[in-house]
Design a protein around this nucleic acid. Structure first.
Length: 814
RNA sequence: GGGCCUGUAGUCGAAUGGUUAAGACGUCACCCUGACACGGUGAAGACUCGGAGUUCGAUUCUCCGCGGGCCCACCA
């Protein structure tokens, strides 16, 4: 027989995978045209509306994990023939930046000149933006571009002039379509800092306060009723007295009126479920505004609010004896007045959970201010329809959006009295006060610029006052999907691609980012902006707790990358759990464990690369080879279906099992003799069949794994097949034949295990021979491989039975 | 306090209205067998949070309780 040498030094030289292989690869990818967006491609578009991270702190491990998963979406779809928009975006507007600037320069927004303050924000941004993208780069994220610019596919920042111009353009459109109006609303207000606060700047603490029982009179009967309150200074704002419908004590008061003490004002008494029978006397005076529940109540009851606190944080003329005093002093004055008239029946010391200013620690007041609103309540049905039509991954997350839509009670307040954000693009005529809206397309700063008109279109006056307010950051970030598709900058492109494929985001911002994006994009385009929504849970620390700076359990992705490199981290991210269904923990041990699979792949590839790949597929494939080809084709198909549904978790577990068990332990072991064929036990055709199959399996496996582990697959594919795996196509389900194989994979594995176990039980080495074996007839067709793999002297078919040679006595057990 | 989600071996996690509930990490034993000791072959380890119900049968469906997560509200 002619012996053929098809074996040589492995093409893969290094002993194992090493993280030092990564930097040259990601540097290449950064510049590679393969990943850049091709505007004129006629491939179908796959666009990912990446969540732009805030740059005031470096990205954390949770963000890097979700970006790694998004990168898998992008890489997979690129291999299935899509043109990809996978943009790098940075969110740089708003409160977090301002707070960082205030801290760094030890200033307050409200006592710093606007221009100077913005300069401070920019300084903070300069310092922080660079470190944020480095983790992404090191993770192997293949963004469409790393260069910041105005073109579709370019990296963007939400505070760039072109982004802000688009934000303003959306406002101008909405304004012109009558979707914006101005109305009075209640704000958090800090009397100490003399500024409105965002909810994020409000803390809650328990502070001691007095709970006063005040004596009211019932107008119709003259009887005295007791109302308990911690806010007697708001008596003048009392507009109604309520009790719980289930409270028998007060049924008799229905329809009657209460006389407010000191003010001698008459207010209705009504039933309302928000009154708690157990609290105080069970009777509640409803004022504008003691707290946010009052606000909601006034809105619901359609009551005209009476404001007792002004923008200066002092009580006003509506507060009677407290007028002109700061809140605290005013309360004392009113209490004194009540005491004098003997209207306080009791005063109890209680601990009261009070909203305070995060920085000055002053109690928050709620005061009314005029703000802009975007209409949303009349879109509720439309929003419900979209919630229904949108594909949610996982489907359970749809409920979050539906619940939110159902709970909407007010329109969307979009203006803020802040600085580092997109300016509301309006001017007002100094004479007739008519608002002037500029044309779309430019970035406007009305607080420091003249409007782009000479004179007021209404009265002809030439002096204007620029609007000082800015937008809520959600007004900016709710257009990322439009922005990345070129809306307002490349309308030719946008007209062809009006729907973004997928929105990946955290579940905690469904009610904000997802909702506002759907709403705003609908108002502007009358279309549903997303096809899919991929909603993720969180990465928690290794004990299952949420990471937070104050607890000090935050895991820095840079450290993970320094220690392990990106590839084990990526494989871990795919394998560890399904992030659309629950949180998962970040632990070094498990990332290290994932790394072991890389080494396994490395060595399998090294083994396969020792053999020459036959130039053509052999006409006749050995039965064992047909079996493993069925397996790899099946798993490639399953992976494809999984990946298309954003599931990398289940496929990666199946792939790992294929690699370690099915392929390495069973196929490679059984086919090894045939592949080497050093003793000439097999024909040339049989050997070639093995070699071709080994390569076919490895080749497909590398292509399937490429989206998950781009580094190792790239390096192996390049070294063995001389091509860029990421430019290859994902294994196709069609065209792969299905072979008839008489045994199941599990049956084969069990049979092998039974032989291995028998040898082991006898204290034999696995290469020791089996003197006689009887196995099921279904394995007859792979007889030759089995005989050589297990070193079987005599093989028959029938009931399972093994005869092993006499062995040295088993080692004594202790 | 309200709504939604969730609870499987020490840890992480699959699966199913029905024979002994995957797999991984960790643990233990033996083995350096022509790619891999970051390996191989085995072993031990879970009455699927507690209780009740539906069912011939529940880990899987329903209800209650307990624990965790997210969002909302924060109590006159």
């Amino acid at each position: 027989m002619q012996l053929i040498s098809m074996q040589s030094e492995p093409l893969v030289k290094e002993k194992s995978w090493d993280k030092s292989f990564e930097p040259p690869l990601y540097q290449t990818w950064k510049e590679d045209r393969l990943y850049s967006f091709d505007r004129d491609s006629d491939k179908p578009l796959f666009s990912i509306d990446t969540p732009p991270p805030y740059v005031n702190t470096p990205v954390h491990i949770g963000q890097t994990t979700t970006y790694v998963l998004m990168d898998m979406f992008a890489r997979f779809h690129r291999m299935t023939g899509h043109n990809i928009i996978f943009p790098l975006g940075l969110d740089r507007n708003g409160l977090p930046i301002e707070m960082a600037a205030e801290k760094k320069f030890k200033v307050r927004l409200n006592n710093t000149e606007r221009e100077k303050f913005l300069e401070m924000c920019r300084t903070v941004l300069e310092e922080s933006s660079a470190t944020s993208t480095d983790s992404f780069l090191r993770c192997g994220i293949a963004f469409s571009s790393w260069k910041f610019g105005p073109e579709v596919g370019d990296a963007y920042m939400t505070d760039s002039p072109e982004y802000r111009a688009v934000t303003q353009a959306t406002f101008i459109d909405m304004w012109n379509n009558g979707l914006i109006y101005e109305s009075e609303r209640t704000n958090n207000y800090c009397p100490g800092c003399r500024t409105t606060l965002a909810d994020a700047e409000v803390d809650y603490i328990d502070i001691p306060t007095k709970f006063y029982d005040l004596a009211f009179k019932v107008k119709e009967t003259g009887e005295e009723i007791i109302i308990a309150t911690t806010r007697p200074e708001l008596l003048g704002s009392c507009a109604m007295v309520i009790y719980n419908p289930a409270d028998a004590r007060y049924k008799k008061l229905a329809g009657k009126h209460a006389i407010v003490p000191l003010f001698n004002k008459e207010v209705p008494i009504k039933e309302h479920p928000i009154a708690d029978i157990e609290k105080g006397s069970g009777l509640v005076m409803m004022c504008s505004f003691g707290d946010l529940s009052d606000i909601r109540f006034f809105r619901e009851m359609n009551l005209a609010p009476i404001y007792s606190i002004g923008v200066d944080g002092r009580l006003n003329e509506n507060a009677g004896p407290g007028a002109g005093l700061p809140v605290k002093k005013g309360r004392e004055a009113i209490v004194a007045a009540l005491q004098e008239k003997r209207l306080i029946r009791a005063a109890k010391d209680i601990m009261h959970r009070t909203p305070i200013c995060e920085r000055s620690k002053d109690p928050i007041e709620f005061i009314a201010m005029k703000e802009f609103y975007a209409k949303q309540l009349d879109q509720r049905d439309r929003m419900m329809k979209m919630a229904d039509d949108l594909n949610f991954f996982a489907p359970e997350s749809r409920k979050i959006l539906i619940d939110w839509i159902n709970s909407l009670s007010i329109d969307w307040p979009i203006s803020r009295r802040r600085y580092y954000a997109t300016e509301v693009p309006l001017w007002y005529c100094r004479k007739c006060e008519e608002p002037y809206v500029p044309p779309k397309g430019k970035y406007y700063r009305p607080w420091k610029e003249r409007p782009p008109v000479k004179a007021c279109p209404k009265c002809g006056h030439t002096e204007f006052i620029g609007e000082a307010r800015v937008f809520d950051t959600w007004f900016d970030s709710s257009i990322t999907a439009l922005y990345i598709l070129g809306y307002g900058r490349d309308d030719e492109f946008f007209i062809k691609h009006q729907q973004c494929t997928v929105r990946p985001q955290g579940k905690e911002i469904v009610r904000t980012w997802l909702y506002y994006t759907l709403l705003k994009c609908y108002l502007l385009t009358r279309k549903q902006i997303f096809r899919d929504a991929w909603i993720n849970y969180h990465i928690v620390d290794n004990t299952g707790n949420k990471m937070s700076k104050s607890v000090g359990n935050v895991i820095d992705p840079q450290k993970i990358l320094d220690q392990f490199g990106a590839e084990p981290f990526r494989l871990w991210a795919a394998t560890e759990g399904n992030l659309t269904q629950q949180d998962f923990r970040c632990s070094n041990d498990r990332i290290i464990a994932a790394g072991k699979s890389l080494n396994k792949l490395w060595n399998v590839a090294k083994y396969v690369s020792m053999f020459q790949r036959p130039a053509e597929r052999p006409k006749k494939l050995s039965p064992l080879d047909q079996w493993i080809l069925n397996e790899i084709h099946g798993i490639a198909m399953e992976s494809r279906v999984g990946f298309e549904n954003y599931d990398f978790h289940n496929p990666s577990i199946r792939l790992r099992h294929f690699l370690w068990d099915t392929f390495a332990s069973h196929y490679v072991e059984l086919s090894k003799n045939r592949a080497y064929n050093s003793a000439g036990n097999f024909t040339k055709e049989e050997q070639e069949s093995a070699l071709w199959t080994l390569h076919e399996c490895l080749n497909i496996f590398l292509r399937v794994m490429a989206p998950i582990t781009p580094f190792i697959t790239s390096k192996l594919y390049e070294e063995i097949y001389g091509a860029d795996v990421h430019a290859e196509s994902f294994p196709e389900p069609s065209g792969e034949e299905k072979f008839e194989v008489p045994f199941l994979t599990s049956e084969l594995e069990e049979m092998n295990s039974a032989i291995w176990k028998a040898k082991k039980d006898k204290g034999l080495s696995l290469k020791d021979e089996v003197t006689f074996a009887s196995i099921h007839e279904k394995f007859k067709i792979i007889k030759h491989d089995l005989v050589h793999a297990h070193t079987i002297r005599k093989l028959e078919f029938g009931e399972f039975k093994l005869d092993l040679p006499a062995t040295p006595a088993p080692k004594a057990e202790h």
